[in-house]
Computed example of a mutant assay.
Amino acid sequence: MTMSAEYLAFHPNPKKPDLAVPKGAVDAHCHVFGPAATFPFARQRSYTPVDASKEQLRALHDHLGFERAVVVQASCHGTDNAALVDSLESSGGKYRGIAMVKPDVEDAELSRLDAAGVRGSRFNFVKHLGSDAALEALNVLSKRYGALGWHVVIYFDTEKIHELAPVIADLPVPVVIDHMGRVDPALGLDQPGLALLKGLLAARKDIWVKVSGSERLSHEGPPFTDVVPLARHLVESFPDQVLWGTDWPHPNMKTWVPDDGQLVDLLGEIAPDPALLQKLLVDNPMRLYWPEEG
Rank of each mutant, 00 (worst) to 15 (best):
I154G: 01
R204T: 01
D206A: 02
V152M: 09
L200S: 04
A165N: 02
V209G: 01
R144E: 04
I168V: 13
Y155D: 14
V209W: 08
F156I: 04
P166A: 14
L171A: 07
A203Y: 03
I168D: 03
L189W: 06
E163C: 00
P166N: 11
L171Q: 09
D184A: 12
A195Y: 00
G193L: 00
K160N: 09
L194Q: 06
G193M: 05
Q191L: 07
G149W: 02
T158R: 15
K205N: 12
V176H: 09
L189M: 09
L194R: 03
V175M: 10
E163H: 13
I177F: 04
S214N: 12
G199N: 05
V173L: 11
E163M: 11
L197W: 00
K143T: 05
A165E: 13
Y145I: 11
R182N: 14
L141M: 07
D170K: 15
R216V: 12
D184H: 09
L189Y: 09
V152Q: 10
D184W: 07
D170L: 13
V211H: 12
I207V: 15
A165M: 03
K160P: 08
G193H: 12
L201A: 08
G213N: 06
S212C: 08
H151E: 06
G146L: 06
S214Q: 15
P192G: 04
W150A: 05
V211K: 13
I154V: 13
L187K: 15
D170A: 15
V173P: 08
G199V: 06
A202C: 00
D157K: 10
W150V: 03
A203H: 08
D170N: 15
A203L: 07
G193C: 12
I161W: 05
I207M: 05
S142P: 02
V183A: 07
V209E: 01
A186M: 09
V140P: 01
E159A: 14
P185E: 15
L141W: 09
A147N: 10
I154T: 08
V175W: 06
G188V: 07
D178I: 04
A169S: 12
I207K: 00
L196K: 13
I168T: 03
S214H: 14
K198M: 01
G146K: 10
K210C: 03
G149Y: 00
K143R: 09
A165L: 02
G146Q: 11
R144D: 09
G188A: 04
G193F: 08
I161A: 02
I154M: 14
G146N: 07
V176E: 07
R144Q: 08
I207Q: 03
D184Y: 07
V152Y: 10
L196S: 04
